[in-house]
Every structure is written in C-alpha cells, then in structure tokens.
Design a protein around this nucleic acid. Structure first.
Length: 461
RNA sequence: GGCUAGGUGGCAGAGUGGUCAUGCAGCGGCCUGCAAAGCCGCGUACAGCGGUUCGAUUCCGCUCCUAGCCUCCA
C-alpha cells in the first residue's frame, strides 16, 4: 500500500486515486528567466521519481508540469538585456529542457505555457468576479478577495489575522485587504499584454496554475506538487481560486519537497547563492551522480549542497556500478528481493531506505561474484538493475560508466597501451616496472585492477 | 511576533519503545607478487533537562539551537 505524506493534513495517508488507477498530477514548474539551479533540479528529480514510481506501481499517470513564460522577472530581465521578453522565455525554456534531458528526467505528459492559456485564465477570472470572489480595483487590476474564501490558510496552517499581523506587503491603494492577491494585472506602457474585459493586461502568477491544471486535469484531481516555498502563498491561492471558481474540492494530496541549502542557508536566486545545474554537471563524471545525491536524503527534508557531498555520492554510486561490472547476463530479477524496495518506496518515497536495499543487493552480488556463483550473480545483477530502474538509476553500461572521468586526461588508447605494457612486465615478473607504470597511471587519475583471470581492468578515479 | 519542519556516530543519512540501518572515511583480517576491488569484522550515535514506562534515541512537557514560510522564489 503506497502511503504519501499529505501537506494538507500533515500526515502520511494511503494513496488512492479518484478514478480507479488513473493518477492525475500537477507540479509547479519554472519561471523561465535564467538557467535552472540545483534547487530546481531537486524539485524536478523528486517529482520525476514520484511519477516514475507511480507508473512502476501500475498507475496510469498523467503528469503535468507548467512553464511560467510571462512574469515580472522575465519582463525585467528582458529589459536589462535589451532582449524581447518572449525570446528570452523561449531561450531559457530550451535551456531547462537541455538540463532536464541531461538529468535523465522524463518529459511531463503536458507542459503548458502560461501564455498559451490566456483565454482559460480570463475565463476563470471572470467566473471569480461573477461569483463574488474577485473585484476590479481602481487601477484596473483584478484582485481576489481573500476573506471571501472561508478555508483560506488551511494548507499552510495560517490564519488570516496572523497573516495580517505579520504582513510585510505594502498596502496597495486598490486592495480591500492587504492579503488580496492579483489575478489580472493591467498593462503599463510598453509591457506585453493580452486583451481582457478589464482592459489589456497579463495574468497573475497564481491564476495561471489554477487555469492550466483545471484545463488539463479537471476541476478536482489527485496530486499536486512543488517546492516548500510555494505552499504559501502560491498553493494556498491556487486552492482559493480553483475551489471558488469550480465549486469543488481541488486537490486530494499536496506534496512539497525540501530545499537545497548551501552552508545551511536556502539556495535561491534572490540570495544569489545558487549553483546552476549546468555548472555543477560540468564537475561530475556523469549527471547520474547528481540524481543519486538528490535522492540520497528524503525528499521532504533539507539537503545541504557541497562538493564534498557530491564526491561522496560519486564514490557510493561508483561502488554500485563496480558491483554490476563483469556480471554474467541472462539473469532475471528476483521478485522477492524486490519487495523491501517496494516497501521502502511505498513509505512516502523513502529513497534512503531504498538505497540501503540496493546496497544489500550489491553486497550479495559481490559475494556471488567472489565465490564464482555465476547463476546467482546473474540473478542478483538483474535484480539490482531492476531496483535501479525503479529509482531511475544504474541503467548505464557499467564498463563504460567506470571509464568515465571528469574533464580531459589520458586518452583511452594511451591507457590501454600502458596497461598492456604493465601486463607484459608483470607476466615477466618485472614487478618494479609494472608498479612504476601503475603509479604513473594512478598519478594521471587511472586506477588499475588485476582480475583473478589474469586480465586487468581500469577506471578513472 | 505567528506558523511549520528539524537537531542521530568523523561525514552523509534512515529508522525504532527492549539484538542490525545503510553509505563514505578510518582501523583489523582474508585475498593479492604488491596493490586495487571484493568479502568478513570493529567503533560505548541518537541536543539538554524533567516525566510516563520494567525499559526511551524512539511517547509527553519544558529549555536551547538550526532552517523555512509569513514579499518574488523549487
């Protein structure tokens, strides 16, 4: 039984989709005004895992992840660059897609862009006005009247009075309540705009997600995800909009992933302490190291980024690939051995626990290899691979993976040549020469391993 | 100030009312010409103070500390 921690109730609950085994999930994606950073990578990886596991569990998943391609920051950045805002949004959408592909993330089933949903956004805004939940302010902005929605604050556990007390928002002239938020922004001169019953303007951020999710998944669906920081106000506002406009419950299960930190501080664009995915990837032997690192702690907790942590993840993942290397093929995964993995994942996607299961399997595989039990090794290897598939890991060719390194170094051919020289020296029992070559290779970042059958394998450190 | 998560061995990180996480690093052994890799073994970990209990790292209370949200943010 799959259980998921629901942010709405604060507890783990058995997961049951509304329509037999169909799962409809929506995740808040990126505002595309820069390259994606490690924080985005965690969110993307976590929900890729969720989506992947749900499918592995036999659910028929519709995964929607939006792109916010119109926003103050995009307009601002474009103005700074002297670039067309739409061109900038397209450029960074492409950049995100490149990074996602490198991270091995499955594309969502739908990736709606806000600018393609203006009619739906306008329609929902109109409905909210008609139903008395929204009003047109003097400056032409359309605002949501928070006090009209009785459940406001339920997701984030906040009460309106508390929010007002701590409100740091400047009290806008047109707002009836400082917490009222904008659904439609009237256009200022020179800004991109779309026509609407309230004059030319553009959508507020929150209404986009409501309009896109409802359009693609219906008024009421199963799962909604995003980063912790979106819980309030973004997701709170989505609930207020969608529930009010549709007159139905909105989402059954809310999932929020924890942050990536740097020096125990949140990594974010506003703090300026962020690492882009592409920069970090260039320091790694393979993007899989980053995925492994991101999944090595539970998705709801914080994770601290550092080069040392990444190095540790690299070493651990390498060990798993070493276990997989030189194993006989033809084995089939053992369903009984898979059970602990399923149990771990069923427990709110407990990836650290799942990793421990992988390690146990790798140890058994190594033991089988050491004793020369080929049949067992083949089965264990197949099992380990199957486990990796569930997590989106360990699908590369082990021999190739182990030869990968970071940056330039000795070419494969040179390594092979030196290794052959050493083998000759060793066969002739000229151990001094053999050891000298091995030391040279080690200095160049290449590690040799003599196999029991007399052959020598190599890998990059 | 309000609300929400946390504080686990050198590091990372799960979990549990009473034998075990797991990984990295370290130490010892086996293996090896020597290594590497692997296997086996080792290390008096659960912020502090009370309470409940036969027994608490695990439950309850308080204290201290950290982070997040309360404004855009994955």
């Amino acid at each position: 039984m799959l259980c998921i921690h629901n942010s709405l109730t604060g507890r783990k609950e058995p997961f049951k989709p509304m329509r037999d085994n169909q799962v409809r999930m929506y995740v808040c994606g990126m505002t595309v005004y820069d390259h994606i950073h490690l924080g985005h990578a965690r969110m993307l990886t976590v929900f890729d895992l969720v989506q992947r596991y749900l499918r592995a569990r036999g659910f028929d998943v519709t995964y929607v992840r939006n792109v916010t391609d119109i926003d103050d920051k995009i307009i601002q950045r474009a103005a700074q660059n002297g670039e067309d805002w739409a061109a900038l949004a397209r450029r960074f959408t492409d950049s995100m897609h490149e990074d996602c592909a490198r991270l091995g993330l499955a594309p969502p089933d739908h990736e709606p862009r806000a600018t393609a949903y203006i009619p739906a956004i306008v329609a929902m805004t109109r409905t909210l006005i008609d139903k008395g939940y929204a009003y047109v302010a003097e400056d032409g902005d359309v605002l949501y009247a928070v006090r009209k929605f009785a459940d406001y604050g339920r997701l984030s556990g906040k009460r309106l009075e508390d929010l007002r007390a701590g409100a740091r928002v400047e009290v806008d002239e047109g707002k009836r309540d400082p917490l009222d938020f904008v659904l439609w922004k009237h256009a200022k001169p020179g800004e991109p705009s779309w026509p609407s019953p309230w004059g030319p303007g553009r959508p507020g951020w929150h209404i986009e997600c409501s309009a896109m999710s409802v359009s693609l998944l219906g008024d009421h669906f199963d799962l909604h995800g995003g980063g912790m920081d979106l819980k309030f106000p973004h997701h709170e506002n989505e609930i207020a909009q969608s529930c009010a406009a549709c007159g139905t419950p909105f989402v059954n299960v809310w999932m929020h992933n924890g942050f990536v930190r740097v020096d125990d501080e949140k990594m974010s664009k506003s703090l300026g302490n962020f690492f882009t995915v592409r920069d970090v990837l260039s320091t790694l032997r393979d993007p899989e190291v980053l995925r492994f690192f991101l999944l090595s702690s539970h998705y709801r907790g914080p994770i601290n980024y550092s080069a040392a942590q990444l190095a540790q993840a690299d070493e651990t993942l390498l060990g798993l690939y070493r276990a997989l290397a030189d194993t006989p093929g033809g084995g089939t995964a053992d369903p009984v051995a898979m059970e602990p993995l399923t149990a771990a994942m069923d427990d709110d996607f407990n990836t650290p626990e799942a990793f421990a299961v992988l390690q146990a399997e790798a140890r058994a595989l190594n033991a089988a290899k050491a004793t020369g039990d080929g049949a067992s090794a083949a089965a264990r290897a197949a099992t380990l691979r199957a486990m990796g598939r569930v997590l989106g890991l360990l699908q590369a060719d082990p021999a190739e993976y182990l030869k990968r390194g970071v940056g330039a170094g000795l070419a494969d051919a040179d390594i092979e040549r030196l290794a052959a020289e050493r083998r000759a020296a060793r066969t002739a029992r000229r151990f001094k020469d053999a050891d000298r070559i091995r030391d040279e290779l080690a200095a160049a970042g290449v590690i040799l391993e003599d196999k029991p059958d007399g052959s020598t394998a190599w890998r990059r450190a």
